Amino acid sequence: MIAAAGEDNSLGKDNDLLWHLPDDFKRFKRLTSGHKIIMGRKTFETFPKPLPNRKHIIITRDKNYTVPYEACTVVHSLEEALDLIDNEDAFIIGGGEIYSQGEKHANVIELTRVHGNFNADTFFPKIDEAIWEVVATEYHPKDEKHKFDFTYITYKRRES
Rank of each mutant, 00 (worst) to 15 (best):
E80Q: 15
L84N: 13
V74F: 06
E103F: 14
L31Q: 09
A81D: 02
P141E: 09
F91V: 01
S10Y: 04
K63E: 09
I153H: 09
E7A: 12
N107G: 04
L11T: 07
G94A: 02
T43H: 01
L51R: 07
Y99Q: 03
F28R: 11
P48D: 05
Y65C: 11
E129W: 01
Y152R: 08
K104T: 11
H20N: 13
R41N: 01
K49T: 13
G96R: 04
D8I: 09
T73K: 14
I109E: 08
P141A: 11
F91G: 06
L84Q: 13
P125R: 09
K126E: 14
S100P: 00
D16N: 12
H105M: 08
R157T: 02
I2N: 05
N117S: 15
T73I: 15
R157F: 01
N9T: 05
E7P: 00
P68V: 01
P22I: 03
R54A: 09
G94C: 05
D86A: 12
E80W: 06
I153D: 04
K26N: 11
M1F: 12
Y65L: 12
E133R: 14
H35W: 03
N9D: 07
H140T: 06
S100W: 06
A81T: 06
L31C: 04
H105A: 09
S160K: 15
S77W: 05
